[in-house]
Design a protein around this nucleic acid. Sequence first.
DNA 1: ATAAGGTTTCCAGTGACTGGAAGGTCAAGA
DNA 2: TCTTGACCTTCCAGTCACTGGAAACCTTAT
Lengths: 135, 135
Amino acid sequence: MNISEAAQHAGLPAKTIRYYEDIGLVTPNRDTNGYRVFSAQDLHKLTFLARSRALGFSIEDCRALLALYEDQTRASSDVKRIAAEHLDEIEAKISDLVAMRDTLSELVRACSGDDRPDCPILKGIEHAKGPARKP
Amino acid sequence: MNISEAAQHAGLPAKTIRYYEDIGLVTPNRDTNGYRVFSAQDLHKLTFLARSRALGFSIEDCRALLALYEDQTRASSDVKRIAAEHLDEIEAKISDLVAMRDTLSELVRACSGDDRPDCPILKGIEHAKGPARKP
DNA sequence: ATAAGGTTTCCAGTGACTGGAAGGTCAAGA
DNA sequence: TCTTGACCTTCCAGTCACTGGAAACCTTAT
């Protein structure tokens, strides 16, 4: 199976698959013409990667998860630790974004949005509390 | 006022302020020794930038907002449009993250996290629905 | 023979910083 | 006066996870 078909099946752009090979996440064989040939196992890996990326895991997390996925003697605690840490990061990002949304939606609501210069949004930014914690 | 004091007041790292000068967001004067000298107006701009960044606006949005902030003849509709578009992006990100969280927290909950290899998280990734839309 | 479409590699750019090296400047203390 | 340490300067490289584009090679159909 060539790269564009593999891309189709895995739900990833071909460019991304080449990149994943570059950084050692997959190592498809090569045909005599130099084209990549994807096996069923390669496809499983790519699909796994596409889905773990869609859950927001970093590439390095994906690398670790993939190794555990292929290791039949893994401990599920190793998987759970990675997932739980990532879950915490997601929760933190949600909190940050919800705080932004609450502030911003109030400012947008208060702004008349006409051709006059008076603007509660600019005033709100000017007088806002300092930035929260860093993401 | 030198850069580290300005950084203190604005709530930004000095490195970031230099970067903002690089990309033309602020243009502090220079002392005879080459040191940057920040005026009260520079400080207002930096504070405005720190706060709009903390609300998640992109640098280019901040550039536009800063121009409107300084333009006494602006129309508040221009500000509101930028803010409302950003608000939509934030809402979309929140939706994505909440979907990730819901999936992931269920998987983490289901995983025993012991030393056995059986793992609902890996199974869940393997059998998940395809990725949602791109962020 | 040619055209269209797939594939290869490699290089550069994205956003918004951040780290680090190498060197100039300043104020205080011995 | 000299030295120390804390500032400040510029410039270059790296981050993350791709993405775009160029130039060239391969395959298939007409």
